[in-house]
């Protein structure tokens, strides 16, 4: 493990990630009616006793909406990370190990997907199909398959010529076990952790971007961090309180996920070397 600074960064980002995950898990259990929350008597309050993070232009509690806003990206982010890492690892292993038409097919698919510009493609899909955050997350997951598959493929190819993999083969260990356990789980785990947290952060970014842009994201009155920030357009410079906390939350969460993924992967790498 690196120095003190890295330790602080690891535990600090880890705490934020844990907090976001905890909120993401607990939030659906809490009932929230956006319509009932409207209270024009209380609008645009600064942080205070009744409303810790203040209220927005409709007098709704920002802290509550911030918490409920995690639902817009939490499960979709997990889904996208799951799709991307699982399919990416599997296809990468096939591309690195298989020969013949199977490999050609997989490599062709990966190259095709890899040429698509991510954000533009997601917007395109939204204009054609009925946009939902699940769809967006699914598409984002698929779009990240090639980058993960490429990393895994290189790993499989590099390890394929290692003496100990040859020894495993000579000892009769099955190909599936060598690929899934010895290579993907033992060797490529740090890579997968890094990629999974990256994809999760990306989904939060996409959700925010789309909700901010308006048409394809989460629609008011359902809260999302993106559409909370979007209020800045209606408010002009009248009050910063309604959007400053969601904006900070977005930046901090994305940064924390990327940092934590990276540092966790680093720890994993060092633990095994």
């Amino acid at each position: 493990m690196g120095g003190r600074a890295e330790r602080i960064a690891f535990w600090g980002s880890g705490a934020i990630v844990a907090l976001v995950i905890a909120i993401g898990l607990v939030s659906p259990l809490i009932g929230y009616d956006p319509a009932a929350a409207v209270d024009y008597e209380q609008k645009l309050l600064g942080p205070g006793a009744g409303h810790w993070l203040g209220t927005d232009a409709q007098g709704r509690d920002v802290a509550m909406r911030l918490m409920k806003g995690t639902e817009a990206f939490f499960l979709p982010g997990l889904m996208a990370a799951g799709i991307a890492t699982m399919a990416g690892a599997l296809l990468g292993a096939i591309a690195g190990y298989a020969e013949g038409w199977g490999r050609t097919l997989v490599v062709g698919f990966l190259q095709l997907v890899d040429t698509l510009p991510r954000l533009i493609f997601i917007i395109l899909v939204c204009t054609i199909l009925n946009p939902s955050i699940t769809l967006i997350a699914g598409v984002a997951g698929v779009l990240f398959i090639p980058s993960i598959a490429t990393v895994i493929r290189r790993k499989v190819e590099a390890l394929g010529s290692e003496d100990y993999i040859l020894a495993h083969v000579a000892h009769g260990f099955s190909t599936t076990r060598i690929l899934l356990y010895h290579i993907l789980w033992l060797q490529a785990r740090p890579l997968l952790i890094r990629q999974a947290t990256y994809v999760f952060g990306y989904v939060l970014f996409v959700e925010t971007a789309l909700s901010y842009l308006g048409d394809y994201g989460v629609q008011e009155p359902t809260p999302s961090w993106g559409n909370m920030v979007a209020q800045t357009r209606e408010l002009g410079g009248a009050s910063a309180w309604p959007w400053v906390f969601p904006a900070v939350a977005i930046a901090v969460t994305i940064a924390a996920f990327l940092a934590f993924g990276n540092l966790l992967a680093r720890r994993d790498e060092e633990a095994i070397r």
Binding site: E162, D163, Y164, L166, A167, H168, L186, I272
Partner: peptide, 8 residues
Amino acid sequence: RHSLDPLM
């Protein structure tokens, strides 16, 4: 040394 899995 190289014939053994370094991670197991």
